[in-house]
Each structure stands twice: as structure tokens, then as C-alpha cells.
Computed example of a mutant assay.
Amino acid sequence: MTNKKDELFVSIIIPTYNRANLITRAINSILDQSYTNYEIIVVDDGSTDNTKEVIQRFNEDKINYYVHKKNRGAAAARNTGIKYSKGDFIAFQDSDDKWLPEKLEKEMDVFLEASDKIGVVYSGYWHIKDNKKIYIPTPKVTKKEGNIHFELLKGNFVSGLSVIRKICFKKVGLYDENLPNLEDWELYIRISKYFSFKFIDEPLSIAYCSSDSASINYSKNLKSSEIILKKHFADFNDNKEILAVNKANIGIYAFLNGDESKSRKYLMDAIRYNPLNIKYWLLYLVSFIQKKYYNIFLNVFFTLRKY
């Protein structure tokens, strides 16, 4: 008798760029999964290292390897993977991260029982930076599943290592290739307008924040945040507090990117939309001091922060 789960074929997409030294760990963590009904699609986004040789060493029929002739960004690489995918479910793995052995099985178990309204299943994960281990999403996120569109407008808490029904992409489109970063968040904002999310509250993957991680590229985060704010302004503008949060975030990225003038402009916008939030006033005032002290304040700000 065929197990229904065997019918749920998953295409696992790994975009990579010059990560030959890390991608073996990422792929091995997939090959070690208890759930085995999948294909792996590695999209090499114009690497100049020996990524191709590393992939060929696996000699694994489940792995399909595609190459961009030049670097086009993570969003484009993910879109190439979706284009070549055969599964009705799309999972994403970053080339510097690791899945725990039961991740995919537990997520597909949810899809097996879920209605078609569930478009995304995601789980908690360990975020490791500077030898510090943090569980994401934090308790500050008050609504983690169901209709989470409003919650997502405050900021992204859904791991990029999620599983998405392929039909979601047919409904809302692919990743926005104009975004140099934060493409996961922008996609989830679109998906959450039409589909519900399910959350597994346990760490099923490990995300490593390395020196070349996109998440710490302030320039890319600044540009992407501005694009997303403009693209979804109508949604943000429905709630002035949420609009203020996003204005403040852009102000922070601008300061960390060395643009104090732009930073203060956005922080003043945040104050205008939510003048009773003392943290925005403090961010504005602290922006006049040296960057090293600003970073200390930010650590406190994000520790105490509640959207």
C-alpha cells in the first residue's frame, strides 16, 4: 500500500555563490533527512571557486546542478531553481546552513494533514552568530501561524528555510529580482495575502551568520527595505505604528551604512507616525554620536524591542 506521504514530492533549492567550503555541510544535511521523496536543485550563481567540483564529488542522482554565467543574486538563483523544479512543494536551503534530520519529514507531515489554504510550513531554527545561539522566532512575535499578513508587515520572522506549495508562486509570482536582500520577507508578504502559514515550534535547522552573510549587509538591507516599503506602501500605511516601525528600520540601516542624513530623515518619519514611542526619539538623538556607541544602543534597542 502506497503511503500518501510518498506522493508529496519536494524540490529542494540551494542557491549558492562561492560557498565551496560550506555547501557540503548543507547538502549532507539534506541527504541525511528521514524524508527521502525529494530532488535537490543546486543553482550556482556565477561562482568563481571550485563549487562545481564539490557538487560533482557527490555523484548523487538526486542532485541537479545549474549554473548562472554571471552573478545575478539570490532571488534570481531561487527563481531558476523554481523554474526547473518538478515537485508540487518547494523547499529552500541556504548553502551555509544546516537542516536537522527530521526537518523535512515533520514539515511534510503538516502538509499531509493541512488544507489547501496552507501555503507555507516553517519551523523554528537556531541562529548562530559570534558563538551565540538564539531561537527564532522569538516570543515577541505574537502570531506565528494562520493569517499572519499583519504580523509580517512588522518584519520577517519566517525562516527562508521553509516549505512552500508551488501553487503559491503561480498565484503571487516568483521572488523579486530587484531586491538585493530581504527577498524572503517580500515574498512572504505577498503569499500571506492569500494563504495561511503553519508553524512547528521547535528548532529544525541551524542558520549560521558568517562574515559574508547577506543579513549583515547594511547597504543591501537599506536598498531592499526602501523598495519593499514603496512596493507595499498601501499595506504598511493601513497602520501608522507598523509604518513607523519600518521607517525606523530603514533609518537604522541608513546610519549603519554611513548615511546619517538619510537615517535622520527616516527616523523623523517614524516619530511623526508614532510620536509617543520614546525609542524612536532615542534612536534619532543617538544618531548624532559615534557609530561604535550607536551599535551598543542598538543591541539594547533590539533586546527590549516589541513591535
Rank of each mutant, 00 (worst) to 15 (best):
F157T: 11
E177Q: 07
F169L: 11
W185L: 03
Y188I: 14
L187K: 13
N181V: 02
D184I: 03
F157K: 08
E186F: 02
D176T: 07
L161E: 15
S159E: 10
I164A: 02
V158K: 09
K154A: 13
L161V: 08
L187W: 01
R165W: 04
L179Y: 08
L174Q: 12
Y175E: 05
F169Q: 06
R165A: 04
I164N: 00
K171T: 15
E183T: 12
D184V: 00
S162K: 15
I189C: 01
K154M: 12
G173H: 11
L174W: 07
I189Q: 01
V172I: 10
E177I: 15
Y175N: 06
Y188K: 15
E177K: 11
I164T: 11
V163T: 14
I189H: 01
S162D: 11
V163C: 03
V172H: 01
V172Q: 02
G155R: 13
Y175Q: 06
Y175K: 08
E177Y: 07
I164V: 14
N156A: 14
F169N: 08
Y188D: 08
K166T: 12
V172A: 02
V163K: 05
E177W: 03
N178P: 10
S162G: 12
E183D: 12
E186M: 05
C168L: 11
G155W: 08
L182E: 09
I167W: 00
E186Q: 11
S162A: 11
L174S: 09
N156Y: 14
I164W: 00
V158G: 02
K170Y: 07
K154W: 11
N181G: 03
P180M: 01
P180C: 02
G160C: 14
D176Q: 04
Y188M: 15
E177G: 06
S162L: 13
E177L: 07
I189V: 05
P180Y: 03
G173M: 07
L161W: 07
L179M: 10
G173I: 13
R190E: 06
F157E: 05
E186P: 04
D176N: 14
L174C: 11
K166L: 08
K170C: 07
K166P: 00
P180D: 02
L161P: 07
L174E: 06
P180A: 02
N178C: 06
F169V: 09
L174N: 07
R190Q: 09
E177A: 00
N178V: 10
I164Q: 00
N156D: 08
F157S: 05
R190G: 06
